[in-house]
Design a protein around this nucleic acid. Sequence first.
DNA 1: ATGACAAATGATAGCGCAATCATTTGCCTT
DNA 2: AAGGCAAATGATTGCGCTATCATTTGTCAT
Lengths: 341, 341
Amino acid sequence: MKMAKKSSEKKITLIDVAIAAGVSAITVSRVINQPEKVSEALREQVQKAIDTLGYIPNQYASSLASAKSRVIGVAIPSLMNIVFTDVLRGIYEVLDAAGYKVLMVDTHYSPLEEEKMIRTLLSQSPEAMIITGGDQTRACQSILQRAHIPIVQMMELLSQPLDMNVGFSHWQAGYDVAVHLLEGGYTRIGFIGARMDPRAQQRLAGFKQALEDAGKYSNDCIWTTDKPSSIGIGVELFKELMTSTKGVDAIFCTNDDLALGALFESQRMKINVPKDLALCGFNDIEASQYVNPSLTSVYVGRYDMGVKAAEMVLDRLNGNVINNIADMGYEIKKRQSTGQK
Amino acid sequence: MKMAKKSSEKKITLIDVAIAAGVSAITVSRVINQPEKVSEALREQVQKAIDTLGYIPNQYASSLASAKSRVIGVAIPSLMNIVFTDVLRGIYEVLDAAGYKVLMVDTHYSPLEEEKMIRTLLSQSPEAMIITGGDQTRACQSILQRAHIPIVQMMELLSQPLDMNVGFSHWQAGYDVAVHLLEGGYTRIGFIGARMDPRAQQRLAGFKQALEDAGKYSNDCIWTTDKPSSIGIGVELFKELMTSTKGVDAIFCTNDDLALGALFESQRMKINVPKDLALCGFNDIEASQYVNPSLTSVYVGRYDMGVKAAEMVLDRLNGNVINNIADMGYEIKKRQSTGQK
DNA sequence: ATGACAAATGATAGCGCAATCATTTGCCTT
DNA sequence: AAGGCAAATGATTGCGCTATCATTTGTCAT
């Protein structure tokens, strides 16, 4: 039955529904949260009142009373980077399906901003937190630990995680890329990198080590910038490296954007890839396998890593015993751009 | 298997801080929310207690008591599409800087899921909502309007927006692309599209209209799928269109992923772009200007649109009188891939 | 001084909901 | 038919904070 009602702006509360349905407030609460505890007759009666009034529960009152927020905080360094949006998607899909809300913050690659943002997240009483890397300030780590909630640090393997950890070894990946290029017969191997965050630095460190082990390391083949990464920056860095340093016959790019920039520019410069120059990227974005020549890159299960982080959180919240560390690994996708010289 | 709760895990509340600082609870509240109303001496005293105890305010209690959430709800169709993550980034940057939290939900392109998710958002008492398009269910539009908060519908221009609206005309953009291709001398012009959401359908409709106006429309040149868009799908659709329909000399791809797939595949098939085939994408992602040949595409200010949506929300919340409609426009970036035949 | 008034601080009362425990109802057992 | 018990429903209380109003303190002109 429809009531002729004025467009009263007063918020509908549990009590309003209870009165309309002729029951007590707690019964309405049960219909919403534990419907199996209410008889079918009453349940329908209450549901009808809810629908008629357009009642929407106040999550703040609910969370305050029950001390449960159903919120999980997620801190990522950037929304501009497909790496993190893919991870976020994995996290979101799993947590959303489990009935959790995801509260995401962007730390802009800054530990100080991260601390501020994590304080904000904690004020939402999240039931768990998923954060990026291990580069937090001391104060930040301290408040995280005092929150006494499950915490996942993701994207890289940490020697001393705060709690749980999912990632892979960037150092080893960098090392392996260098080995792959050396095996291809390339001898003067360069590196270009933008936005050198802790993980990119580890890749570079592993890469350097491998070249040093082979006696092929040369400092003037390394070209980096702190600017955000992009295809355009890849073009620039590539040109700078090629003009300033002669004889470079292979380049490891710290991500696929840079590598694509280098590839597209080398096409324009009529440099033959891979005969005259090998190119290797990182992350293996979709374009890498379709460009011509196809681009060698390091595949990383970004979405899967997000899924795993979320699953670890859920397991912990559900009291399941789990392994606190997950190494997701990586895989060098060897393609045309690093074919033999 | 619950762990015994140690007393050290007890949450620190306002009261604890007040006692530690030797003041009343409301004074602590003021130090946090209206510090200018507290004398400097007390303020320092309280701040010290806050820091020592590691106090973090409970946002739920605060929101419940003050009826202010500082939350803005955002509903986007997908986190997998750079279009929406770019818009989200614009929204996030502006709202974050203004002290608002962004609660994002992913509707998976489904109006039914959107309704469910928007209910969830509304239970967080958002102070405003930013949603995508005008494709909501009746029920959803109804609860949105009854929420009596500012609402922005974004991504496309609507004939009857619920409240505020920021976007551009997809129909006109599709029309203009067809005109551009016709002007290039192309006569048998096809279309490939994936994930044909309402906006992609409008682009197709405008495109068709232009071809019909020119007497060049042919139904067997239109190839679409409901699968999510990707470079890989672009490759597939392109191959299907080229093998099933002969003589196609230009293709409008409903986004740049598809266009890149078509471009890369045509390189492999030794089809000369643009001499034998023109390609035009949509969205103008970064790769489009760097590939060889560079890809004609329709530039859309995604980040700017997010910024604009957020600014409209803030203006409204701050009581500023503003225009409720914002046409962000678009621009066809004419590049090599649609050069003369 | 003495009031007048502003600034600083405090006491009280909810915000809307769910935990907890109390009460009622319905149904089975003997 | 009476007792016993589980299921269904309700009354009360408090989660942690802020709005509101009350009170105290400080400042200044007269």
